[in-house]
Simulated scan of single mutants.
Amino acid sequence: MSSEEQSETGTGWPQPAPPGRPEGPGGQPDPRPDAPDPDELSPLAPREEPDRDGAGAEPAEDVTVGLPGDRPAWVGSVRSRLSTASVMIAALLALLGFTLVVQLKTTSTDPTAGATRQEDLVRILSDLDARENRLRQDISGLEDSQRQLRSGEQGRQAALDEATRRADELGILAGTLPATGPGLTVRFEAGAKTISASRVLDAVQELRGAGAEAMQISGGDRATARIIASTYFLDGENGSLVVDGRRLTAPYTITVIGDPATMRTALNIPGGVVASVQGDGGNVIVEDREAAEVSALHAPIKLEHARPVS
């Protein structure tokens, strides 16, 4: 062995040649199909370790690592579906919340009725019962009149009596006839503030709602005006009141015919006329009358275009 070969190995001995593929005759590679690959025969080639069962390990799957900017197409589709579903869920929740709020407001109790005293509630119930009884009496009277009008010979006289009674009622309502009967006198006394026309109008409306049949108002100067459906109220000079063009001075007194208990309850209801006037520093004096007299008359309206039909 030459010295050059010894120096290349570093040990003084020649370096062994790597194993090669067995060659066939004439130095050609081994033509056998099952001939081992020379790389597999190398001692440095990695070997597959057998499993516990003795079988060889399965080859690793081919994992492709994409770049950060490369996103699959299905990612955008999933995000679009999620955003649409979120919007629909939010809209349904908002609609449900709105429905609940409306339901709570609808079923909630009236705070005014909740703050009303038991005595006031009893009065209101009594007022409603009185109205019901009055309406039942009216129905009964109308049914009796109907039977009399259909009774043959007495029909003509019954019709005449009914027409006369109806004319009297309409005359009282229109203010062309005087009236008398049980009722109230309501006196308004001003305090720090004058009695406004709106307060008097509120009293008239509450009395009408309680079944008042005839009313008149008088002032401190004894001027009197009949109150009918077309009567208007205005604030005059120096705290006066104008009723249908007639000027009245304070204090004002309303004389009304109707059920006294029912009308008194309507005036004294919480937040009503009496409470409003007292809140302004004034006072309202309500007195019962067994025979209240409404004597002021309203001039009948001349009909220019309408005429009765025979």
Rank of each mutant, 00 (worst) to 15 (best):
T116I: 08
T180L: 04
Q28F: 10
G175W: 07
D62Q: 00
G20D: 11
T109G: 09
L93W: 03
S108R: 09
I301G: 04
I257D: 01
I228L: 04
R71I: 15
T84Q: 14
T180S: 13
E8W: 07
Q216D: 03
S3G: 09
E162Q: 12
P29N: 12
G141V: 07
D53I: 00
A292D: 04
T112M: 12
V204G: 04
A35G: 05
P182W: 02
L121A: 10
I217D: 05
A167N: 15
I269A: 13
S77L: 15
R208H: 06
R208T: 10
I227G: 02
P18I: 01
T194D: 15
W13D: 06
I285R: 12
A35V: 11
R71L: 15
A197F: 05
I227A: 04
P260H: 04
N238V: 01
G171F: 06
E189C: 00
E48S: 12
G10V: 15
R226N: 07
I269E: 13
P33D: 15
L297D: 07
G141E: 14
K193V: 10
E23C: 04
K105M: 06
T106N: 11
E8I: 12
S145G: 05
S140M: 03
A73L: 14
K302V: 10
D127M: 08
F188T: 07
G12M: 08
A192K: 12
D53W: 14
A223I: 05
V75P: 00
E237Y: 03
R264H: 04
D34N: 11
D138C: 00
A179S: 12
P300F: 03
R187S: 14
A296K: 15
V78W: 05
G10F: 14
R165H: 03
V284Q: 07
E5L: 13
G54W: 15
R52N: 11
P111K: 00
Q15S: 08
L149Q: 14
A192F: 06
D161W: 01
P178D: 05
A179K: 04
Q103F: 03
F98C: 05
V200I: 15
P270F: 10
A91M: 13
R222K: 08
H298T: 11
D138S: 07
A210T: 05
A55C: 05
A190W: 02
G10Y: 12
S126W: 02
R134W: 02
